[in-house]
């Protein structure tokens, strides 16, 4: 059982100590990671994925339940505590969707029955359906992302979930986030999207490769988050219209209800 992880700060890109020295993240918490492009967001969650022990650029150290994880825990996929949806938009592996998923299920010690469940789940997140006999490399960016999300949710089912920019592939981000962040997990979400950022409990702000500060989501932000969600839903409905070939010549902001 994983109750908390600790990020012990290292060094930023200039080699200076990170302003934030320690961050504790507890079971059940959704944590955001925000910051300009290139500020080190992906690197931070990369450190957590590898359960880094001062062996990466940043020299950060990650503890699980206050202890250093064992070598076995860090490397054996059957024992892995971390599932990661990385920023990669495409698969490079040269095989069919079905073969890929059953191989991955085998690696993670999951049942091969998962395969159809993953494809079905992925298809609820993307537009054109993915089939078992499709080659991975021909999937579009959005289809690949949807499949990665479903794979992480079902096959890599782990107590720590790291999500890098779920908003960037045109898939249904709220649904994807819901699918990934099961009850009692530690979830970290890297995002540029204020709607997602305000849905988290706290967020780390990155700057020049270092953790600059930790901001708690205030009550005011939480109620603003509801409004932002409505605006977002409105934008998504417009997106669907455009996607389906409709013409939008006018919008009624009153529809948003704010």
């Amino acid at each position: 059982m994983i109750d908390k992880i600790t990020i012990i700060g290292g060094y930023n890109k200039q080699g200076e100590k990170e302003p934030v020295e320690k961050v504790f993240i507890n079971r059940g918490e959704i944590f955001g990671v925000v910051g300009p492009t290139g500020s080190g967001k992906s690197s931070l969650i990369g450190d957590i994925e590898q359960l880094a022990q001062e062996d990466t650029f940043s020299k950060r150290k990650i503890l699980v339940n206050d202890e250093e994880p064992s070598y076995e825990d860090r490397t054996n996929p059957r024992k892995k505590m971390v599932a990661q949806l990385s920023q990669n938009m495409n698969f490079l592996a040269d095989m069919s969707v079905g073969d890929f998923l059953s191989l991955h299920a085998k690696c993670r010690g999951a049942s091969s029955k998962c395969v159809n469940a993953v494809v079905n789940l992925a298809n609820t997140l993307t537009g054109e359906p993915i089939k078992n006999d499709h080659e991975l490399t021909i999937l579009s960016g959005g289809q690949s992302r949807a499949l990665m999300v479903a794979d992480v949710a079902i096959i890599s089912d782990s107590p720590i979930v790291l999500i890098d920019e779920i908003e960037n592939a045109g898939i249904r981000k709220h649904d994807a986030l819901k699918v990934l962040s099961g009850h009692g997990k530690i979830v970290m979400v890297v995002t540029h999207d204020p709607v997602l950022a305000l849905m988290t409990d706290r967020r780390i702000v990155m700057k020049s490769g270092g953790m600059d500060k930790v901001v708690g989501t205030s009550e005011a932000e939480k109620s603003l988050s509801k409004k932002l969600n409505k605006i977002d839903e409105f934008m998504l409905s417009l997106r669907d219209k455009v996607r389906n070939g409709d013409v939008i010549e006018d919008i009624e902001l009153g529809d948003v209800g704010i």
């Binding site: 994925e49 996929p77 892995k80 599932a83 990661q84 949806l85 990385s86 990669n88 698969f91 490079l92 592996a93 890929f100 191989l103 991955h104 085998k106 690696c107 993670r108 990665m148 794979d151 992480v152 096959i155 890599s156």
Partner: peptide, 12 residues
């Protein structure tokens, strides 16, 4: 440069 799943399969 690849997804976590691809990495795990490669290792296996």
């Amino acid at each position: 440069m690849i997804s976590q799943a691809e990495r795990e399969i490669f290792r296996e």
